[in-house]
Design a protein around this nucleic acid. Sequence first.
DNA 1: CATGGCGTCATGTGATCACATCTGCGCCGC
DNA 2: GCGGCGCAGATGTGATCACATGACGCCATG
Lengths: 216, 216
Amino acid sequence: MQITTRHSDPSASAHDRVYRGLRTRIMHGQIPPGQALTLRGIGREFDVSMTPAREAVQRLVAEGALSMSASGRVATPELSNERIEELAALRALIEVELASRALPRAHMALIDRLQAINAGIADVVSNRDAVGYIRTNLEFHRTLYLRAQAPAMLAMCETVWLQLGPTMRALYSRLRRSEPPQYHRLIIAALKAGDEPGLRLAVRSDVTQGLRMLTT
Amino acid sequence: MQITTRHSDPSASAHDRVYRGLRTRIMHGQIPPGQALTLRGIGREFDVSMTPAREAVQRLVAEGALSMSASGRVATPELSNERIEELAALRALIEVELASRALPRAHMALIDRLQAINAGIADVVSNRDAVGYIRTNLEFHRTLYLRAQAPAMLAMCETVWLQLGPTMRALYSRLRRSEPPQYHRLIIAALKAGDEPGLRLAVRSDVTQGLRMLTT
DNA sequence: CATGGCGTCATGTGATCACATCTGCGCCGC
DNA sequence: GCGGCGCAGATGTGATCACATGACGCCATG
């Protein structure tokens, strides 16, 4: 075991590597809700000691991506329905604003990229790949919101995605999804037309659509 | 120096104590923007080793309350005007929603407490106490939003407050503030009247008022 | 056979250490 | 006098250790 030297990638610190690894896994729904994690296990998996593992885990706990029991054990959270409704409302608030800010900067190249990503969603949908669906769906939204030039808002938005990650996995794997999301088409159409009210409505509908199967 | 035992308060872990201490200081504007912090200094101040100090600092960095240079040095952030505008917009979005959700649950006892807090603002204003003003102002808002029964939204909201803490200090100490905020009265009046549109407007105005002196 | 007590192991927490890197300041040469 | 170089101290990072605590299973006893 290497003592202190780090040959591979000195640009990223160990805890950051662990943090990013766990973060994408959680956000993309690769970990089911309630899954327990241990610091030593994470350390073994990423080949680091407990210190970076602990820092990464604590950061994820602070962001709401993991929950910690009173005894310090960590696990992916099992969200209540009220919590899910709240997070969906936050998504609606922030993402509508981000889309609205991105609209005046949306050029043809962006719309083309969005359509390409949307076409990719059709593939993963036909494969019943829940993780791939979540990842591609988030990529669609992130690509659009990057144009808003609002890093603080985007960070908040991704924090909400992170908290919803394990739950989205459970939701989408239960959901019999056979068609690509129709609201993405509406979003693209509103972007093309420069129709801000239509864009806001389409984004809001897309964000809250997954929620409806909970309440019904 | 105590080796491993911790006699005082076993309910709170050391890093949590450090985290909360630094957090309230930053949120209340007790630290000016650009102020540098060192892990060993924090450890000495809170009488802990570097490990809990590092965890607390990293958590605050993750929340945007502190900024970290490439070499790992941490300091309170000096926000750009674009960043401030973004954070103010986030405050407006989230706090309007929180107030709106609190409205149907707002009873007379809550309004009385809000008026009491608002009276306290007059005191700190007359003393030119910027930190006291920020603390009392945030207490006013938090008291209202707690009624919304939306913990995830409130957490997001407090994260934004945290990021704006040092900047608010700089803003309010530059600002010659001689009167209690008039929008708080409007908020209370709208709560009494059950006037949701008026409440939303009053909250939005109160949140964005501090911003206007930046743009003018 | 059921149940409670106890011991063992796993796990989180915090302190300390070793090391790399950065900072800043002084010294020496020009 | 001034600027560049180098060294010493400060600082962050990660590994390891010592310890407290909680979990789980096993055995003894009623």
